[in-house]
Amino acid sequence: MLANIEVIEALEQAEKLGKMITESEDFKVYKNRKKALYEDRDAVKLMDDFSKMKEHYDDVQRFGRYHPDYSKIMKEIREQKRDLDMHDTVAIYKQSETQLQTLLDDVSEIIAQSISPNIKAPRDGIALKDSGSGCGCGSGGSCGCQAS
């Protein structure tokens, strides 16, 4: 019974912490910039175009350099990614996303260290990233063909 009460109390504290984060300035800025991003027609068009090109990119990655459109698709995906990343609204949104991720990483680290100095907390959103190379061309990732 005691373990159940402790678990319930820990869950309540976690809920309070989550609420504090969603009420933080970093989260509010992130939410506003995300809204602005999806209200910016140019940015939405760039994201849609990039998503469509990413489908072609994924197809090309299955065959690698042997795909007939390899060079064309690789060039286009890099250009579209650059255009997307350089768009003001997208860049501002990504900055706020990074700031919020830093806050979440800091909170995770504080919680982990309060339990034991041996517990490792993920940094820079590493828990969300794919552990594989992301390369589909069969070169083992050495070619650097990953677009995202």
Rank of each mutant, 00 (worst) to 15 (best):
I5M: 06
I5T: 06
I5Y: 01
E6N: 06
E6M: 06
V7D: 02
V7K: 01
V7I: 09
I8K: 00
A10N: 03
A10F: 00
L11W: 00
E15S: 08
E15C: 05
L17I: 02
L17F: 00
K19N: 05
K19A: 09
K19C: 04
I21Y: 05
T22H: 01
T22E: 09
E23Y: 13
S24L: 09
S24E: 04
E25R: 04
F27M: 01
K28E: 12
V29K: 07
Y30T: 06
Y30S: 05
Y30H: 08
Y30K: 02
K31T: 11
K31E: 10
R33Q: 10
K34Q: 04
K34I: 03
A36I: 05
L37K: 03
L37H: 05
E39Q: 15
E39A: 13
R41P: 11
D42T: 14
A43Q: 10
A43H: 11
V44K: 14
L46D: 02
M47G: 08
D49T: 15
F50P: 01
K52S: 09
M53N: 03
K54Q: 15
H56D: 14
D58Y: 01
V60I: 14
Q61T: 02
R62N: 05
F63W: 10
G64L: 08
R65H: 14
P68I: 09
P68L: 07
P68M: 10
Y70G: 12
Y70F: 15
S71L: 12
M74E: 12
E76R: 02
I77M: 11
R78F: 03
R82E: 05
R82I: 14
L84C: 08
L84K: 02
D85E: 01
M86L: 15
H87R: 09
H87Q: 15
D88Y: 02
D88I: 08
V90P: 01
A91E: 10
A91L: 11
A91C: 10
E97V: 00
Q99H: 14
Q101E: 11
T102P: 13
T102C: 12
L103W: 00
L104D: 03
D106Q: 08
E109A: 02
E109W: 04
E109R: 09
A112F: 04
S114A: 12
S116K: 12
K120T: 15
R123D: 01
R123A: 07
D124I: 04
G125L: 06
G125E: 01
G125S: 00
G125Y: 01
I126Q: 15
K129I: 03
K129Q: 15
G132E: 14
S133H: 09
G134L: 04
C135D: 04
G136V: 15
G136N: 09
G136C: 13
C137Y: 03
G138F: 09
S139Y: 14
G140Y: 07
S142L: 13
C143I: 06
C143Y: 12
Q146W: 04
Q146M: 13
A147N: 06
A147T: 04
